[in-house]
Nucleic acid binder design. Structure first.
Lengths: 183, 183, 183, 183
DNA sequence: TATGAATGAGTCTTCATTCAT
DNA sequence: GATGAATGAAGACTCATTCAT
């Protein structure tokens, strides 16, 4: 029963991490203090000690999830910058993304939460806008925005269909949207 | 106290209607018997009398929401069939759709619920697949599917941005996807 | 939707029968209008139409169960009257009885209900007293009463043990109680 | 409002105690969280905080009731060990026991619950088996078992009759069963 | 600082009972 | 006479949150 002295920051981080893990499993609305505490392996009190309310915890978790976006965007950015064929590279990146159910569900939850709670929209916009900016380095803004929109649509599609949209459709569509030749 | 003997079908319909009204307001996860009963103007017991469980009620409500889809698709189908310029007509239809926050939030909730509960996916697919079929009467299947995906992406976009995607981007993108000239 | 005209008496009887069937399965406290109606194959309303309240239905069912006792006692009475060796015959009858889990549970429920609700005790006493009277035709009253008590004890024993008391113990004990030689 | 920080063990004990008190009054099936909480003088939430479910609470209460058995058996064991006339002592002990309606009703509820829920049978067997073992120190096993069975029968008898079995019948019967001379 | 005991509001659900038809 | 729709009380249970320690 010795209290394991941990870095408070570390504690906070673990709670958020646990919440992030749970979001794709039970949805934002399914989060409870108890569930998060159990997953994080911290005492129940810790979740209220580090976060004023459950809503705040949820927001922190969604913010962390959105943060992952940043890393992802950087990767995509680097990949695109290094590539000769932007469309082909993008198709590959998107196809990989559409395989990652955990990530897709997380982002879908973020979108859904944003749809309901306006204060969360900036978080939800981060992916969408970041992707647009990224693509805008290679194509004109309109095409960039359109491609980002299409990619989000592909996310929705993948979530409710047994298999994601096929590579060819993806390639032809993105090529058309970006104004390049099909990959 | 007095048992107001109403038309049972009507009763059931009103409960579902109330739930449909509430879904864009509080989300699928925010539905409770009490909330639905209050909105429908029926006693609490009625919601459990007509639906074995809350889940069943939710499903019925989402099914009703999906049903609206059918009507909407018919309208779109007629409009497209009657039009000379498919792309232009589609752009107009989509632009209108992106103004209807209630409908968008409802469908987004349907998508989100489908992401979490596989048994709801067929409902969620109805719009997506119906739209694809519809467009397939005017363009090839790949383009049709891609356009439907893009339109769903525009829905997400509109939900988390203050204003929906602009008409020009819409027009150019759909034209590109459909393989027609810009509207 | 034609109303099957049944004899009201028959209806009542079926409801009681269904309740009797359910008592050993779910216990007296587990009876509900719905459960009984479903088992009896009658509409829900019938159970309240024929019985002023659930308590009344329960009482009627327990009374019917107690009624079975009468038939059983008659059988035992005839068997004992016809036998040369009262103890041996009684041992056989009791051993058979201890195999009949449905009957045992029913009577146990009757005893338990009687322990809680005094107005049901006369019903519960019917078996106990009837058996005593019956045996009193062959042995003195004290022995008869004692044997009846022992047999009820054997009922309890059988209910909570995997197998009922063995034949030899039964034989020796009843012989001792009845003041006869062991069977 | 104020969180009265009490000894948790004490809290738990009081809840169980309240449930034990209520069992002979309302029966096992009559127990509710509300009833127990009110009797224990604790807030409603406490009963679900200390016990995962009502079933668990009931089991704990019945286990506590069975525990009393142990103490009782020890007393009986000591009394019998110290006595010259085992039968006479046993008659006295049983006669006392048959006066204690609360205890009898509790044990009857335990038996009835065991009849319905097999997982409770070990608890119910504790008295029956303990008594048998105890008596087996003074008479042969068969007689001991038979006496225990008879005593349980006397419990049932007392519950549904206005007065328990008379001392003489008790004495003669137990003497016969134990193979001793009447007390 | 950190914890987990404590609480009561609120959830879904079941159900006896009533009563319009 | 019979039925099943209707209702609200009450049940078990969950949980965010508070707070003594």
């Amino acid at each position: 029963m010795t209290h394991v002295r941990r870095n408070p920051e570390e504690r906070r981080r673990r709670i958020i991490e646990a919440a992030c893990e749970l979001i794709p499993e039970v949805g934002v609305a399914g989060l409870t203090h108890r569930l998060v505490a159990a997953r994080a392996g911290v005492p129940l009190g810790a979740t209220t000690y580090y976060f004023r309310s459950l809503d705040e915890l949820v927001e922190a978790a969604l913010a962390a999830a959105a943060e992952v976006t940043t890393a992802c965007l950087r990767e995509w950015g680097e990949a695109l910058a290094a590539s000769r064929d932007v469309t082909a590279t993008l198709v590959r990146l998107v196809a990989d993304y559409l395989q990652d159910h955990v990530r897709m569900r997380t982002w879908n939850e973020l979108y859904a939460a944003g749809g309901l709670r306006p204060e969360l929209r900036p978080l939800a916009r981060r992916w969408s806008d970041g992707l647009t900016e990224l693509l805008a380095e290679h194509v004109d803004t309109t095409a960039a925005r359109a491609a980002a929109v299409f990619i989000d649509g592909a996310l929705l599609h993948a979530l409710i269909h047994d298999r994601p949209i096929d590579g060819e459709t993806l390639g032809r569509s993105l090529a058309a949207i970006l104004g390049t030749r099909p990959a």
